[in-house]
Design a protein around this nucleic acid. Structure first.
Lengths: 213, 213, 213, 213
DNA sequence: GATGAATGAGCCTTCATTCAT
DNA sequence: AATGAATGAAGGCTCATTCAT
């Protein structure tokens, strides 16, 4: 076994270790928020010695920043792969609504991570010079669709790309992130399959009517 | 001695003390989140002995629950005072949008408090039997407006009150709560007077178009 | 027992607790140096909870500073009680040599504490505004003796009080502080009664000859 | 491959590496003391892998011992090169005072290293069998000078070589090592060129008067 | 009811050292 | 000989909470 194995031992693999820490940190930070997360817990989850975490990332704050950046990179990468050019601009916007919702559902950690960062007034993101770079494509996509929609006359001409992006995110993000208090307040399970489906429909309908010329 | 005491009545002191703790806790919990808040800091802010805090509220968790309930009570009380009956149902809904936005702007602690609670999956609210009671009026108002709007033919008939309420809250809440990350991502100050005004306009426009028959 | 005891419980006595921490810190800092000393060890030695140490002193550094100041205050207080006026100036200087040596022998922690502080280039003392104030009497005593000695013609007129003070301290301090390496280097026990007596004699002889007109 | 290697001889590398570690360790140990020094920092300063340090020296303690021995060897080597025979014994003693002072000034690490070791009660030196051997010449020089001075009648006959050596070292060592606290206490810069010159003069004067028959 | 001294568990971080390659 | 990933045990400090008066 040892003789034939050309692979490095997993226990001594720099990248694999960093990756394990990444994943563990993403999970724990999302679950507990930055302040609630415990470095010990992340180390245990990542099955590494606590010191490795400091060796590779420097501090709890820097680890959080790395996880956040990675989270943004991930959603932007998937978003960039959407084939929006074959659709009319208005349909493309609705596809963005759909994508956003699908992404949030598939990556619940993303919204929790962002939420924790906002509770701290984006103190990590504000210090990260890569943030804007990573998210450049995001605003670019919507801006391009808005101008195309104007030419095609499929979208009204007076929309601001930022407001549109925020609204698309808001309708889904808030629902999912706050579904715990909302379910209690409204005495209805906002996490049920039916309610989730209804939510997506409502969101698409809302945006569709808003962008209509 | 006790009979002739020129000091303020103990009852007065008692309530005043609790009130000070309340306010301080609301401020600190909102600023730092539940996990980030320090009991010591709350006591200092409230200018009371730390023990008083335990005497009146039992624990950090129970204090947080009390603050949350109080926050809900406050928004519901103000909401209930809106004079919506003199307006057509659709205009009344837009007034609700307007009120919600105004309340969030005037009470930034409210959204931060709710956010922290949602990061914890509403673990305090779920144990509080008063939550639904406090928020009953909220859903009732919208439901009544929706049926009136149906009769008046000023609002479409296929809307769900919960989805509507969530959307109204979402469009403003998400914008304000996440403005720190959003400002960084979009390289634009979402807190500027102009952007805030544009946001309210966008929200009203969005909801107006959505509820239109 | 409890009924008749008008004294506060020692476990709840602010000053007594601070005093215990003081003593313990002095002992441990002297024994191990600042960097070698462990806060836990000090707490155990003082029989207090570790947090008390931070409650009363703020940090390991501030505790060290407090101990240092206290050490200086103590030697200066005893020094001030010497009755030097009844002696001729030159005899008074020799009495100072004697006192310094006696104090060092009786308070071995003093030299070790100072030594640790000097290894750190007096970083605590330099930040303490009280240092000079505390030591004012020290230089004053020698300066007064030097001028009296000049008038009496019992001491040469060209001596600098600082150089004199440093030399008096040096001859004893260095011997005691470095006796461990010196004993090894010279293969002789510098801590033996006989060697100590010889040292004092040598010091007095050295200073006596140096100050002679 | 090994035979024709154009690389430097391993022996050269080996010694060069050890030498770099030596120097780095001397610097860091002197600056921070044994407890304050960090093995990592020494490795970085020496530009070697941390493991090399353990490979060549075994432990932080053994490295410190090696550095200490080296420091002693260095001062003794320079001391042995002094040409004292051409001077009268009393002048030779004063030349020793001068040399000691010059060496301390040129090698500030030496006194800091010794100081740290004394704070630890010479625990490294006491275990090192080479210490006495290395320092044999030191006491021998003074002993020879004292007997010559006795014969020459240039030095009094009742002096102990150990006490003399200690005093010579003390007057300079204490001044330099403790100049940080002393400067604060006396509110005078003991490190200034003028004060340093005055100190050397005072030292020579003190010793000259003391050894005079 | 009110005070503040006290606690034990736990936090983030760093240490000297060793292992695997 | 040399690298650098990995470790376990602390280290200084802080937390929510309780005790004694």
């Amino acid at each position: 076994m040892a003789i034939m194995s050309p692979k490095k031992s997993p226990a001594r693999d720099r990248e694999a270790t960093k990756e394990r820490i990444y994943r563990a940190a993403g999970k724990i930070f999302a679950k507990c928020g930055f302040d609630g997360a415990r470095v010990d817990q992340i180390a245990i989850e990542a099955k590494v010695n606590k010191q490795m975490l400091y060796h590779y990332f420097g501090s709890k704050d820097e680890l959080f920043t790395a996880v956040l950046e990675s989270a943004y990179r991930s959603i932007r990468a998937q978003e960039a792969e959407l084939e929006l050019d074959s659709l009319s601009a208005d349909k493309a916007i609705l596809e963005l609504v759909d994508f956003t919702w699908r992404y949030y559902l598939a990556n619940p950690d993303f919204i929790r991570l962002l939420n924790s960062e906002n509770q701290m007034e984006a103190r990590h993101l504000k210090l990260s010079p890569r943030t804007h770079e990573i998210n450049k494509s995001h605003i670019a996509i919507t801006e391009r669709l808005l101008s195309r929609g104007k030419r095609e006359r499929s979208i009204r001409h007076d929309l601001d790309a930022v407001q549109l992006n925020v609204s698309i995110a808001a309708l889904g993000f808030f629902y999912l992130m706050n579904r715990h208090t909302l379910s209690t307040v409204f005495q209805r399970d906002l996490g049920s399959k039916q309610m989730l489906d209804e939510r997506l429909a409502a969101m698409k309908d809302t945006i569709a009517r808003w962008i209509r010329p």
